[in-house]
Design a protein around this nucleic acid. Sequence first.
DNA 1: GTCTATAATTTGATAGAC
DNA 2: GTCTATCAAATTATAGAC
Lengths: 185, 185
Amino acid sequence: MPQDKEKAILKITQEMIRRGGYNGFSFRNIAAAVGIKSSSVHYHYPTKEDLAVAAAQNYTNEFIDNLGEPADIVAQGGNPIESYVDAFRNVVLNKSGMCLCGVLAAEADNLPERVVAELNVFFEKNVEWLKNAYTAIGNTNNIEAKAVQTLSSLQGALVVANAGGNIEKFNLSVAHILDDTTGNS
Amino acid sequence: MPQDKEKAILKITQEMIRRGGYNGFSFRNIAAAVGIKSSSVHYHYPTKEDLAVAAAQNYTNEFIDNLGEPADIVAQGGNPIESYVDAFRNVVLNKSGMCLCGVLAAEADNLPERVVAELNVFFEKNVEWLKNAYTAIGNTNNIEAKAVQTLSSLQGALVVANAGGNIEKFNLSVAHILDDTTGNS
DNA sequence: GTCTATAATTTGATAGAC
DNA sequence: GTCTATCAAATTATAGAC
């Protein structure tokens, strides 16, 4: 199965970026983890930039897909903002490192522009999802601000949790987000 | 003046880390920027870990010193939380990249442990400062949670601003922080 | 698609002269 | 304290055989 190797490359690349950023992975590291040689990795992704762009795209699509549709969550009696916070909480609980686009965003000044462009796609799609989520729960005041605040609070909570590495600090950081979903403040 | 070179090394190292993280600087890069050779940088800081530790310590001390004392700010009619938000806003306005300890925290899993230890010092000192600040303005409910939330929100606001790079998004991200300093919610 | 082999560059680090 | 010279290792990337 030819495309399995390509998927394996993408998966391990994502994991490595989430722990060490753009310089946290190398063609040889990835090759060793997948069980092939570095030249074979280059066959699938000619340059490091290509590989990072593909990893960011794949991460973004998986992340958004995994969230589901805000309207569906509400229809099933759930709170989409709670779902969103849980998605980030699971990053800490599963010890998956950082949000791939969060860690790359921190290094953006030293990254190829095509990679930075993908980061913007991630952030735009997340703001869009959150705006739909706040709309879906009838929280319609200052939607844009609420969406950006929730996104940045969670990115920051991951940063803080990743330094000290405990879930309690993460939970403290995000407690205020859900307070906002019961009223319309 | 011998110690001037050492200070110059520390300064340029901080700048480079803030733009590219731990792998955003090299002994040769720094040497070139300071106007000496890489072996001279090694004389002042034997290993890369040593240099990163010194840069983190220096950054933390300068950052906290620059904030001043919360009680003094209140005594002069100011709002220390506003001062704190401004300190982060200036990072974006001055295009200084990221918070040095924020970008390193994102890469923590791939960093020498002595560097990670310094990150924890930064975060602890900041939480302490914020607790004093909330106390100084008479906002005494859930001080620990408020401090951690403000810190992580600002770290996240820098991450988001650093990807897209505009001050409007930063301002949107942090708007809610000051809303909290007028009441006691 | 994967391999061997290798090129070209960069990196952290050290020895020893001045 | 700074220099020249150098080392060993790692990195991105390519050529060509199978």
